[in-house]
């Protein structure tokens, strides 16, 4: 009796593995609607079809959604599409199984979220008034963490497969491997995308700092111009490695770069 129960649980879990891909690999879907639906599901929100349609109908949403879903996903979508259509025929039993799978995965997800959130809070505490950059960085980390939990969850399902009857094992393992490979690809892509986004943001931030420094230099240069007409550009802090201690001020004006010495 207990063994049979264990077997059915293992079968249920394995089936859930197949189903959870539909939920967890949400971002694979090229279609905005399914991305919205599955992203909400991945966050534990059950939204009506009307609400999902409404959200997905947002004009600019397509641009802001995961751009990594374009290439190579069509094939995956097609194969998943088959499963989904088969799956919906199974009805409530599958819903229950997918819920079970979500419950298992949710724990991983919550832990990952908590870690990312801690970093976010620290970022907000440092950034006065709450900078948007924290939310952006948080989003990136969250997406990576989410992809990681899917990989972790799928990897944890090997035991359930081992508990299946022998004749079902090979097929389930093949399916699990396929899902895992996709999840790993997803993780890699997400990481790359987030890294690229972070790098772009860093570059922008550096540009801004440079621009600000440039402005400040120009301003102080102008101030310096008023007091020292012979110094057009430098901000009064010229590089003087030979005389680091010579802070007496105004000591050697002639060497400080007076072009033409007006």
């Amino acid at each position: 009796m207990g063994e049979r129960r264990l077997l059915s649980l293992a079968a249920g879990t394995a089936a859930a593995v197949l189903l959870v891909g539909g939920i967890g690999t949400a971002a694979y879907a090229a279609d905005v609607r399914s991305t919205v639906e599955s992203a909400l599901a991945s966050l534990g929100v059950e939204a009506s079809d009307e609400l999902v349609d409404d959200l997905a109908g947002e004009e600019m949403l397509d641009d802001a959604l995961d751009e990594g879903g374009d290439e190579g996903d069509t094939e995956a979508d097609e194969s998943e599409g088959d499963e989904t259509s088969d799956g919906t025929e199974e009805g409530e039993e599958e819903l229950e199984e997918s819920f079970l799978a979500w419950n298992e995965r949710a724990e991983l997800w919550r832990t990952a979220f908590a870690e990312v959130k801690t970093e976010f809070d620290a970022c907000r505490a440092e950034a006065e008034g709450g900078k948007g950059d924290c939310a952006v960085a948080f989003s990136g980390r969250l997406q990576v963490a989410f992809a990681e939990t899917l990989v972790e969850f799928l990897q944890s399902q090997n035991e359930a497969i081992a508990a299946l009857p022998e004749e079902e094992r090979a097929a389930a393992q093949a399916e699990l491997d396929r899902r895992l490979e996709k999840a790993l690809t997803k993780l890699e892509r997400t990481q790359e995308r987030v890294d690229a986004r972070d790098a772009a943001r860093l570059e922008r931030a550096l540009d801004e700092v440079e621009a600000e420094t440039g402005d400040a230099e120009t301003e102080s240069g102008e101030t310096a111009d008023e007091s020292k007409p012979g110094k057009p550009e430098k901000s009064g802090k010229p590089e003087k490695p030979e005389n680091p201690g010579n802070g007496g001020g105004g000591g050697k004006p002639d060497h400080a770069g007076k072009p033409g010495g007006k």
Binding site: A27, T35, L55, A64, S139, L142
Partner: peptide, 21 residues
């Protein structure tokens, strides 16, 4: 809020904010 949650999980929040989404 729901759109933002979707974007946090699977999109580019920065762009969405810049676009006014």
């Amino acid at each position: 809020v729901l759109l933002a949650a979707v974007l946090l999980a699977d999109g580019d929040v920065e762009q969405a904010v810049a676009d006014g989404l």
